[in-house]
Design a protein around this nucleic acid. Structure first.
Lengths: 203, 203
DNA sequence: GTCTATAGGGGGATAGAC
DNA sequence: GTCTATCCCCCTATAGAC
């Protein structure tokens, strides 16, 4: 069954507080090492329980990864893609999306980075579901860029390629950003918005 | 001891053909799964030997990863950074670097992608050495962009940020490029060159 | 230089008591 | 819902024969 963005997303609410705590702990551990370097016992200890307890809340370790990645990916898209439908110029809307993308990805970096790096550790079915959401986001951005070019606000030679390039730029920030650096994450988000406008050829 | 780019790089030549074959096999396996998902026995079997044989050629599994990442990183930089010293315009030189970066990274995708993804599985000492080379490349690009802006060919508001954004764009290609797609890698490399010139604000 | 055999530990997951 | 105990498998790495 193909999922849609309209589906109600009550996963977090319908789960026990313990289960949510386990996922919070796990996503942080997966972020700091990687999925295959973090054992069941490590996750359990960090959550203050024994290994066997995890299997009361989740079917497998992979299901934890799946929940982490699915929810962070789906929720981000559901809450942020509507920016592109706002009643302002193409440039304003794109710049705002970039700004929010960079800021949100950093604020939710444990789940978001895991969702970028560990996709290959999902089962084929789970991977397909996550990729569906990712593709919705990517295609919408590409269409938006193409539309902006069509209406003369952008001058893009290849909207699909530009869209993917922008995504890689934005997604990369979490890998190098350090809070102690020269710029605050909000400043980087702002500057990336301006950079993206150059890239799409704003007039 | 701080390594330099001037050091002679005879690693591959000084190693037995068997050892090089093991590294070729290992980098491909690390690329397809990930470092921690590929066991010693899998590497050995794929190379046509038993697990214990690997320890005649390398001290540890991590040393294999280190050799793969170090050599591919160092050799790329040594061979391609001189492009920026060519006697042409800033725009021409930058575009050519981008083109070669994208093409080379795809051609050497096993080692290159492993070198981007698996850095955290290196020992602190090995990581520091690899990061030295990566930083040489990044800083040179940032300086080059700043110089291009200084001499009026580019109009960059923040050369350091732009440099890192370009690197993320270029490094991302291997993660989504499919040879069966609409564009050949050489076309993408070409288009990325033009895209980058927009990003740095070529007049 | 490659092998067999194995050490020593940790992996994910389950059974069944409480 | 959490625990203890445990299963079976695979991990990296080493010893020592050939």
């Amino acid at each position: 069954m193909i999922p849609t963005l309209d589906v109600a997303c009550a996963d977090v609410a319908s789960r026990s507080e313990r289960a949510n705590e386990i996922l919070r702990v796990a996503s942080r551990l997966f972020f700091e090492k990687d999925y295959n370097s973090v054992g069941i016992r490590t996750i359990a200890n960090s959550a203050g329980v024994r290994g066997a307890t995890l299997y009361h809340h989740f079917r497998s370790k992979e299901e934890m990864l799946y929940r982490i990645i699915l929810e962070v990916t789906r929720d981000y898209i559901r809450d942020h893609l509507p920016i592109l439908d706002a009643p302002s110029s193409f440039a304003q809307r794109l710049k705002e999306l970039v700004r929010q993308h960079v800021e949100y990805f950093w604020a939710h970096r444990y789940g978001m980075s895991v969702g970028l790096r560990e996709l290959h550790n999902l089962t084929p079915e789970h991977l397909a579901e996550v990729q569906f959401y990712r593709l919705v986001y990517q295609r919408r951005i590409q269409e938006f860029i193409a539309a902006g070019a069509h209406f003369g606000e952008f001058s893009c030679f290849d909207p699909d390629l530009v869209g993917i390039a922008l995504l890689d730029m934005m997604n990369g920030v979490n890998d190098w950003f350090k809070p102690a650096g020269r710029l605050h994450i909000a400043e980087i988000a702002q500057l990336y918005g301006e950079l993206v406008l150059r890239t799409v050829g704003t007039r």
